[in-house]
Each structure stands twice: as C-alpha cells, then as structure tokens.
Design a protein around this nucleic acid. Structure first.
Lengths: 236, 236
DNA sequence: ACCTGAACACCGTTCAAGT
DNA sequence: ACCTGAACACCGTTCAAGT
C-alpha cells in the first residue's frame, strides 16, 4: 500500500508569509534583485503559487510597504500638535531606515493602501485638532509631502566625493569645475573628520528641514492664514 | 555593374540623436514602455547599435535627464538671492512638467551628471553670494532636497477620490473610514468646482512650500544661525 | 576594425493540461 | 476545483561570427 508521504512543507503559504519573506529578501539581497520567481524559490514554492496571495508584483510591493508602515509607533498621547506630528514622523523615518528599499518603493506606488491612508488620516487629524483650518491643513500636508512618511527628498547619496581619504581639497582648479559644490563638499568632509564621523548627519538634516516646516506652519496658524487671497506664505 | 544602393538612413546615429529620440519616446508613449530594443526599432537601427553611444540603459536615462535640464532657463541676473533662487527653481519645475517621466527618473539616478552638478553649483552660488554661510547653505540645500530641481515630493496623484461626480460626500460613515482624509478631500473637491477647475492647484502647492522654506531660510540667515550648537531651527 | 545576429540569462504573467 | 508545468512575449547585455 502507498505510504503517506511526508509533506515537504507544513506551514501553508499565506499572504502574510509571502509579504514577510519579500521584506526579508529585499532587506538582505536588495529590492532590485527581488523577483516573483526568486521569491517563490526562497519560499520553496512554484512561482504561480504566489499569485494565489497577491494579484501581481505591484500588489506585492504595496503589501511590503504596509509591513514597513506597521512598524511605525502609534501616536504619542497628550502633546501639542507639533510634538505629536514630530514624534510620529520621526518614528516613520526610523521605520524606513530599517528597510533601505522602502523609500524608493513608496515613491513608485500609484495609490495609497488602506494602511497608508490610515497613517495619513492620523497625521491630518493632529493638525485639525491642533487648531489648523481645513484649508491650511491641506496646504501643509502638501508642503510636508513625502516627509510626512519619513522620506527625505535627497537626490543623491552624496556629492561625488573623490573618495574619503583623497587629496586635501585643492582650493583652486580648472574653470570647468564646480567651485560652490566643492566648497560645500570640503566643509562636509572637514566636519566628518572632526565631529560626527559621518560625512553628513542625515538625522540632523531631516530634523532641520522638518522643524523649519513645522515652525512655518505654526506661524501661519497663529496668523490665521488662509489661501483665500491665493498668495503664498510670504505675503500676509 | 552593381548600382550604388541608396543608403537606408543618411543622418548618422549620434549620442544626441539617441537621447532626443528617447526623450520623445518617453514623452509620447511613457517611460515604462521605453526599452533599448524599442528605442532601436524607433530609430531604424539594430539594438546593439545604441551601445555605441550609451554604455547601458542607466547611462541612457542619465542622458535623458540632461536633455531636460538643458531646458532650464539660465539664472536671472541682478536680483536678491530669494528672487534668483525662486526664479531658477520655478524654471526647473516648468522643465520637469514638460516631461512627466522626468521626476521619477531623476529620483532613481545614483549619482549626478556634470549637467546636474552645474545646476546645483549655480543654486549653491546664489545662497553663498546672498550672504549665507557655508554651514547654513549646506543645511538649506538639504532642506530643499529635490525641490531644488523642481521636484514635488507628492506621494500620490490624489487621495483615492471616488470619482469626480460621485456621491456628495456623506459626512458620516463606518468607523473603519478615514474621516480627516475625507474632510480634506471634500474641501478640495468643493474648491475644484468653484474656483480653479482643477482638484488641487499643484503650482500653488509647490510655491506655497517653496516660499515657506525660503522665508525660513531668510530668517535663519538674518539671525546668523549656525549649526554649531547642533540644535534645529526652532531653538535659537 | 567595425558591425550585428544569435544567444544567454533572465523577467511577469497567461493558459491549458493535469490531478 | 485546485494546482502547476510549459509557454508567451518580452527584457538588457554578451559574444562570437561575419564583413
């Protein structure tokens, strides 16, 4: 009689298991190496089996973003609007920093998942209960943009520095050069060696920009600013 | 005797022709449809012929960005730093708007091309000659981030509105809803119908955020702000 | 030396054939 | 009804064979 063969895998495939495996894969090997086929192999499953749990690769990426979002700390109770928003956004940033691929993937999503919407809803709510009009809240959310989710709109990792321990920034060179870029890069390199041991303190830059915006928001709120006149913040 | 056969194409392939064709292709059909193979066919050329002019697809994309950057107006002479920066950035934004794919492509570049560096250099120079210290200029450039190149860090095109002429925003609904998102979306829809004929005035939002930042920069400059104390803009 | 067809090593997804 | 192997219609890029 036929022996009952031991099943190869006992934990059944679920959407959750697929998503978590995808996140782990992207964390480890990188998002550009993530393919449906490789992910299936990683899970010991035939590629088509994944399509039982995610409609396509886009939905897989949506789900991966949701996993990251779930790591954001819940709202801190009982602080003023600025502290609450600041806390939430810095927590979002911490979540993103744990998954280097997340920022890029978030920026390619074409519409927000319910999880993302819930997060946005909570941030909007902080402004509204903090005394911001619907009108001002709307513009303020646009001004925050991706920073609301902890994204930094950095363009490049760093100016193309000629290697960490290269020549000590010869201050004059060919006219086809970029003197101001060079000046800035030189200052950053100096800072790196003497102060923080890191070319540029990303956390500081993030908070600098965030606080600049939040302070501006507060000023407009106090002024009772409204877009009725269709003029920008500068002209009250 | 063999007749001198008319050559099929007379204008020889150049890097410039490749890049311009790629830009036109992306403008027309969309960036996600752009492939080396299709671009070659568009140019009436075998795929491998492209590799004579661009090392690979990444370099093709770099070159496409350069084409867009070349459309940015040169610096306006003789204005204060804020006017100069504002003018340049809004010009960059206009260039980007003409090429819907450009923002996304720029954000995936891993290092700046010389053309991009030259642009950054000119913006940095405006701050420096406008009285900003190297230190403050550095942070200010980070705070501008992609906005310096006209990018808006919008996350999604719009909140998932239920169609332009859907039900008139029933103000109460299930608890699993997003009341604040709904409130904002409702106000925007109202605005659309009565004021601008567009759900959300992207140009206004861009300038709102830009001016908020520029005003903040000016304030810090006047205060002689420096990062020496490692505290953000809020605490002077 | 230059050019290019075929090939390689992949993709995401469809679909029909198996159980 | 469910599952899955093979197939489809692509990719970017290498490489060896042709001129």
């Amino acid at each position: 009689m036929a022996v009952q063969t031991e099943p190869v895998r006992r934990t059944p495939l679920t959407r959750d298991r697929v998503l978590r495996a995808a996140v782990a894969f992207a964390d480890g090997i990188g998002i550009e190496a993530l393919s449906m086929r490789k992910l299936a192999k990683e899970l010991g499953v035939v590629p088509m089996a994944l399509y039982k749990h995610v409609a396509n690769k886009e939905q897989l990426l949506d789900g991966m973003v949701d996993v990251v979002m779930s790591e954001i700390a819940p709202p801190a109770p009982g602080s003023d609007w600025k502290g609450a928003v600041r806390h939430r956004i810095l927590s979002a940033r911490r979540a993103l920093l744990g998954h280097p691929w997340a920022a890029q993937v978030i920026q390619t999503r074409s519409s927000p998942t319910p999880v993302v919407l819930a997060y946005m809803d909570s941030v909007i709510g902080m402004f509204r209960t903090g005394g911001f009009s619907v009108d001002l809240t709307h513009h303020v959310m646009h001004a925050l943009g991706g920073r609301m989710m902890g994204l930094t709109q950095e363009l490049f990792d760093a100016p193309p520095s000629p290697g960490p321990q290269a020549q000590p920034v010869t201050p004059t060179e060919g006219a086809g050069d970029y003197p101001y870029v060079r000046e800035l890069a030189g200052a950053v390199v100096h800072d790196e060696a003497s102060v923080v041991g890191q070319g540029c303190d990303d956390q500081f830059e993030f908070e600098f920009a965030l606080d600049l915006l939040l302070d501006g928001f507060e000023r407009l709120r106090q002024q009772g600013w409204s877009s009725a006149g269709r003029s920008g913040p500068a002209r009250p």
